[in-house]
C-alpha cells in the first residue's frame, strides 16, 4: 500500500529568499494522524502549500495517495487538490457571502469526484450530518449567516467542509490557534473522530506543544527540514 503523503528530496525557497525547506524524506501512512510542530515562520504553511500543490517545489517529488503530483500541470494539481485534499486554516475559513450549508458543500461544486462520494448525491444531507457530528446539530446554525457564528463554530464548519466528499487527506494549518483551551480539545476530538470514521489521513500543523499527545505521531519540522539545521 502506498503512503498517504510521501515527500522526497523536496526543496523550496520563496523568490529572493534563502532556502526555506529541504526535506529528504517525509512519509505519512494512510489513516495516520500526524502532528507537525514548528515555531512560527519555520516554513510549516509553506510545506502545506507544496503538499497541496498550490506551490511548486524547486526540486523533489511529492506523492499523494499514490500519485506523484510534481510532474502535473498547475491546473491538474488544482483538480487533484480539490478531489483528494481537505483544508482547514487558522481563521476566516469561510466565504462570508455564503450560508453555512453552502460553505460546507463548496468542495463538491469544484470537484465532481468529491460530489460523487457523497452518499446518494445528497450534498445538503451530508453537510448536515457532518455539522451534526462536529457538534453543530442545532437546526438554526445551518441557516445562519456565517459571520454570525463564533470562531469555534466557524472552525467546525470549516472542518465539515474539509471532510465533505471523503477526501483521503485532511490538512489542518493551526486550526485551533484562535480557540481557547477547552474549545481546542473539543474541536480536536471531534475532528479526529470524524477523520477516523472516514478513514482520512490527518496532517495537523501547530506551534502549540500541548496538543501533541492526542496524535498517533508528532514530527518536529526541524527533524525533517535540513535547510533549518543549516540556518540554525
Amino acid at each position: 500500500m502506498t503512503a498517504a503523503i510521501h515527500a522526497r528530496e523536496l526543496t523550496y525557497a520563496w523568490p529572493n529568499k534563502p532556502a526555506l525547506l529541504d526535506v529528504r524524506d517525509f512519509r505519512i501512512e494512510r489513516g495516520e494522524r500526524v502532528f507537525l510542530r514548528g515555531p512560527s515562520g519555520s516554513g510549516k504553511s509553506t510545506l502545506l502549500g507544496l503538499l497541496g500543490g498550490v506551490l511548486e517545489p524547486d526540486s523533489g517529488h511529492i506523492e499523494l495517495a499514490g500519485t506523484d503530483i510534481t510532474p502535473l500541470s498547475a491546473s491538474a494539481r488544482d483538480r487533484f487538490r480539490g478531489d483528494h485534499l481537505g483544508f482547514i486554516f487558522q481563521m476566516f475559513n469561510l466565504i462570508p457571502y455564503l450560508g453555512v450549508l453552502d460553505n460546507v458543500v463548496l468542495p463538491a461544486r469544484f470537484s465532481a469526484a468529491r460530489a460523487a462520494r457523497v452518499p446518494n448525491g445528497d450534498l445538503e444531507g451530508e453537510a448536515r450530518r457532518l455539522l451534526d457530528a462536529l457538534g453543530l446539530g442545532a437546526r438554526d446554525i445551518a441557516s445562519r449567516p456565517v459571520t454570525e457564528l463564533s470562531i469555534g463554530q466557524q472552525q467546525r464548519v470549516a472542518a465539515a467542509r474539509a471532510l465533505l466528499g471523503k477526501p483521503e487527506i485532511i490538512i489542518a494549518d493551526e486550526p485551533t490557534s484562535s480557540l481557547d483551551a477547552d474549545a481546542r480539545t473539543d474541536f480536536l476530538n471531534l475532528l479526529m473522530r470524524e477523520c477516523g470514521t472516514q478513514g482520512a489521513t490527518l496532517l495537523f500543523v501547530s506551534h502549540d506543544l500541548a496538543l501533541g499527545g492526542l496524535f498517533d505521531r508528532t514530527v518536529q519540522l526541524a527533524q525533517i527540514n535540513r535547510a533549518l539545521e543549516v540556518a540554525a
Binding site: 498550490v54 498547475a74 487538490r81 478531489d83 483544508f87 466565504i95 468542495p107 469544484f110 470537484s111 467542509r161
Partner: peptide, 16 residues
Amino acid sequence: RREMAILRSVGARPRH
C-alpha cells in the same frame, strides 16, 4: 484575498 485563497483550497483554479 482570503476569500480567494479559500476558493483555491477547495479546488478553484486561478482562472476561476
